[in-house]
Nucleic acid binder design. Structure first.
Length: 962
DNA sequence: GCGATCGC
DNA sequence: GCGATCGC
């Protein structure tokens, strides 16, 4: 370099190691990356990707990675609670850390730390020193506290994350984001609002918004305190009382730039990595793709199914299995499968890694917007054995959404979009009718992602889809029940492909968001076609996986056939007597007002009873009750949960009043007020949505509204069930309940003679359990004994710990442990069953139900005893609860089928885990009752033949039906 | 135990 | 996001 050339800019990157590592770890937590040795490599991979990204993209001249010093910092000395709430480091990060350090060394990058200081102090100090020597400095961190250090030459570099591009924050960004005039004021804002994760308290009642307003007005915490008289009411009181805490919080939020550390530029000079060391590390960690990308060559890669950019695309056979060519001649020359390249970056939230987009792959997407094109498409559709399809609509609410278009795909890389005029109902209906021969075909397999949604939309256009279904969402739910199943994540993970985000079309969420109907069909075409195409390709990936796992039967015999059943249930809805609800609301309001008055009288002041924070302060600070029983929650607030208040009830009448107040306000807000608002104006009924892919055990869940938690336990709660009524005078509600299914399953699985005998003899199983555990004859079991025995039985089914059990029945942990021990002595086979379940899970790392549904239990061999214990209880509970879910799902399919076959008017309208509810035609009740019983009890037979029993009742409302 | 919902 | 409470 010649002397006259201008000096190259000196670019220093300082990485905040722990912040980046934690972020990487949690980014992968929903889709953990486990290598063949069982190590969770998410944190290492994410951190390394971030590091590589910055090296390649930003080309720093100097770089260093900063860690927190090992000893406690001056902040801990100032404020004992500082970071006290912080949870211990996750085990996986502890394991990852040595690897990360070795990788940093392999890159020849220095690690910087200082006893008694945190990484941010080190970074702040070095940044300022480097700035003086003419460096442009980038602090690489996701942490907003660093904003206080930003200057013209010191900036924050937020690495790419969760689909967001990397971002550089300069002075203008910081001022805009905090709405301040000077960068230093960041500390004032943080001091006022506090930071829950660092346990910096701030001033109570001041959040982000208030902090900004106050600092805009007063400029600093100190000046705010000097002018505290100008504030009003509660705010003034808080600022006055917590002035000291505010100042200390400001101090804690301040990054200290006086760490005794020299800035030695030449030590931070970027150096070439040690490729041998890195290659060995990457091999050990199984980072094949990363290794190939940054080191070149390397170990053999699995041949990619997709053509590499620039090379000749793979030729796809022109004929599909059904013998049908593609609609437009010869698309095989261009279109190829999106491709499933094997690699470690494919997980959701991976900071980097090659993920293709629509513009990177060849595709043939066609707009079919004339009668001729539609006819041609239909004739091709009818010749396929399987077709993936998707609907585009104006919104997510199936009751109000209008159809905008339909897309279809049967060859990878190729799809067809049929737009409809959303605002012309008749014209839309006519186009939909054209495709009825396809939708109603009994032989063509229809593939969809969350296909229940499409079924419901089409139902509103009088289409009753027939034939077999394949839902890719449910397929993945069986493969990885705990993970997310939305299409974008699946495409990223399994196809290494990022679909066009919907927000590219309709804009970001909010008031200004438009709908699909506002766009020209040509603008929707690619998005819609891509959905059908991706879904088709996912099906091709999932089907062989399911086959290998032995789960294809469960999908095809249970989950997929259940989809139309649920679609019908949701479509039918249940009638609510809104008048009765409103009357009850007024009645509840009367009680609530009365209770408020009494509570305020007892407390000697008015306050917001619904605020656990205020309530805790009133009870434990002001009234000073519950000495020795006071507990705090993990956020440092007083705990005011049920068990605490129940204990306090003996001491002070206020506790019972509060519990009653809570119960009534819960009933009012969650049920009595909310339900009438969800009644559809179209048919006067409430339509819940069942989610078939969220519960880890295989159960369904219900939302919007949740009709699976309508009260039943208390008198006042039961009142709500009276408002669930049949659709008209010619119907009644019929409820069919499995009696003790889960305990029967446990009795069967364990083969416990005593318990099986109790079921065979039709005894009350909780009483018989109590008789054994408390060693008294059946007729000497009192209600207290029965209650305890029942809790133990449920404890096993729900997988609660001895500790949880003690809490529930209000006994000591010791007594709980004793009850459990006696239980095991009396029911040795149950104990053996539990041990076997755990041992089996230790080996397989999953548990399975009668129909082979899996729940993965990867923490069963963890060294963390709490985590392991929790997972062990799941190992016992998952097969029991999951088998019960399998059984009722089978029963639903069979009953639905039978009702249709017999052309009966009765409709299934709800499922509540072990109960089915029907809107039954009154004249049909007698005929259907025994058949429903039969279909439910024989849906699945338990291996040892323990019988299932079902109770059926009917009445003018849901309460009477029980 | 899980899942959903409410108000703070 | 948290604490509390409903059902199974």
């Amino acid at each position: 370099m010649s002397d006259t050339a201008p000096a190259a800019p000196k670019k220093l990157f300082l990485l905040d190691a722990f912040a980046l590592i934690y972020r990487s770890h949690f980014a992968f937590s929903k889709n953990p990356r486990i290598n063949s040795k069982g190590m969770n490599t998410g944190a290492v991979l994410g951190f390394t990707n971030t590091l590589v990204e910055v090296l390649q993209k930003e080309k720093p001249t100097h770089i260093g990675v900063c860690f927190d010093g090992p000893k406690k910092t001056f902040r801990h000395e100032q404020f004992a609670a500082y970071k006290a709430q912080r949870q211990a480091m996750p085990e996986d990060i502890g394991i990852a850390l040595p690897y990360i350090k070795k990788i940093i060394q392999g890159f020849h990058i220095p690690m910087l730390m200082m006893d008694g200081f945190e990484a941010d102090d080190v970074i702040g100090t070095l940044a300022q020193k480097a700035e003086k020597e003419g460096f442009e400095v980038f602090m690489m961190t996701p942490d907003k506290d660093y904003c206080q250090l930003v200057t013209e030459n010191i900036k924050i570099y937020r690495p790419a994350f969760m689909g967001n591009a990397a971002e550089i924050l300069d002075v203008a960004h910081v001022l805009a984001r905090f709405e301040i005039e000077r960068v230093e004021q960041v500390i004032d804002i943080l001091g006022l609002q506090g930071d829950a994760s660092d346990n910096i308290p701030g001033i109570p009642g001041i959040g982000e918004k208030t902090a900004k307003t106050l600092i805009q007005k007063y400029g600093s915490v100190e000046n705010l305190l000097a002018n505290v008289d100008e504030l009003k009411g509660k705010q003034q009181e808080n600022v006055r009382n917590f002035a000291e805490q505010g100042l200390m919080s400001k101090e804690l939020a301040t990054i200290h730039v006086n760490v005794p550390l020299d800035f030695e530029a030449d030590k931070l000079l970027l150096d070439a990595p040690d490729e041998t060391v890195l290659r060995e590390l990457f091999d050990e960690l199984e980072f094949r793709q990363l290794s190939a990308r940054i080191l070149g060559g390397g170990p053999e890669r699995t041949p990619a199914r997709v053509a590499a950019p620039g090379s000749t695309p793979v030729r796809r056979p022109k004929l599909v299995p059904g013998g049908q060519a593609s609609l437009f001649g010869n698309p095989g020359d261009e279109a190829v499968a999106i491709g499933a390249e094997e690699g470690e970056t494919g997980s959701h939230g991976a900071p980097a890694g090659p993920r293709k987009r629509l513009e990177d792959v060849p595709y043939n997407y066609h707009l079919m917007d004339t009668p001729e094109l539609r006819q041609s498409l239909l004739s091709f559709l009818l010749q396929q054995e399987e077709v993936s399809f998707d609907t585009e609509t104006t919104g997510l609410d199936t009751m109000t959404a209008r159809l905008v278009g339909l897309s279809f795909a049967w060859l990878p890389g190729e799809a067809y979009y049929v737009p409809v005029p959303a605002d012309d109902q008749a014209a839309t209906q006519a186009i939909v009718d054209e495709f009825c021969p396809f939708f109603e075909s009994k032989t063509i397999l229809k593939i969809g992602q969350n296909i229940k949604y499409d079924l419901t939309i089409l139902k509103h256009y009088n289409v009753n889809i027939s034939g077999p279904l394949f839902d890719t969402m449910l397929a993945h739910y069986l493969i990885e029940p705990d993970m997310r199943h939305n299409m974008d994540v699946l495409a990223e993970t399994y196809l290494h492909y990022s679909p066009v985000p919907i927000t590219d079309l309709i804009g970001p969420k909010g008031k200004k968001q438009i709908t699909m109907a506002d766009l020209a069909p040509a603008a929707v075409k690619d998005y819609a076609c891509e959905d059908a195409d991706v879904t088709l390709q996912l099906k091709h990936v999932f089907e062989p996986m399911l086959k290998d796992l032995g789960l294809l039967g469960l999908l095809n015999d249970v989950e997929n056939p259940l989809v139309p059943v649920l679609a019908d249930i949701e479509y039918e809805g249940i009638r609510i007597d809104s008048g009765a609800m409103n009357e009850y609301s007024a009645e509840l309001q009367g009680y609530i007002t009365e209770l408020e008055t009494q509570i305020f009288r007892e407390a000697g002041q008015e306050f917001n009873i619904g605020s656990p924070k205020q309530l805790g302060e009133v009870l434990f600070d002001k009234m000073d009750i519950g000495k020795g029983k006071v507990k705090k929650t993990k956020t440092g607030q007083y705990a005011t949960g049920e068990e605490i208040l129940s204990q306090l009830a003996a001491e002070n009448p206020i506790a019972a009043l509060i519990l009653e107040y809570r119960q009534l306000t819960k009933l009012r807000s969650t049920y009595v007020e909310a339900l009438p608002q969800l009644v559809s104006v179209v048919d006067g009924r409430v339509h819940t949505s069942f989610n078939q892919a969220v519960a880890a055990t295989g159960r369904l869940s219900s939302t919007n509204p949740n009709l699976q938690n309508i009260p039943i336990r208390t008198e006042r709660g039961r009142e709500i069930r009276k408002a669930f009524v049949p659709r008209d005078e010619n119907h009644v509600l019929l409820a069919a309940d499995y009696s003790q299914v889960e305990l029967r399953i446990m009795a069967d699985f364990s083969g416990d003679k005593t318990m099986i005998e109790a079921f065979r003899l039709g005894q009350d199983v909780h009483t018989s359990t109590a008789s054994k555990v408390f060693k008294v004859p059946m007729d000497a079991v009192d209600s207290e004994m029965r209650r305890k025995a029942k809790t133990v039985n449920f404890g096993i089914i729900y997988g609660i710990s001895a500790f949880g059990l003690a809490q529930r029945i209000g006994i000591s942990r010791k007594e709980a442990t004793e009850i459990i021990e006696t239980y095991f002595q009396e029911f040795p086979s149950v104990k053996a069953f539990m041990d076997d379940s755990i041992n089996r899970a230790r080996e397989l790392e999953y548990a399975e139900t009668l129909l082979k549904r899996r729940r993965y239990l990867r923490d069963i061999n963890s060294r963390n005893a709490t985590l392991r214990g929790y997972t062990e209880r799941n190992a016992i509970n998952a097969p029991i609860q999951g088998t019960a879910a399998d059984i009722i799902k089978m029963a639903m399919i069979n009953i639905h089928h039978w009702l249709r076959e017999e052309k009966l008017g009765t409709k299934m309208i709800l499922q509540v885990h072990d109960e089915l509810v029907f809107d039954a035609v009154t004249e049909e009740v007698e005929y259907i009752t025994p058949k429903i019983k039969e279909l439910m009890t024989t849906a699945l037979l338990l291996p040892r033949g323990v019988p299932l029993e079902v109770e059926v009742g009917s009445g003018r409302n849901w309460l009477q039906a029980h």
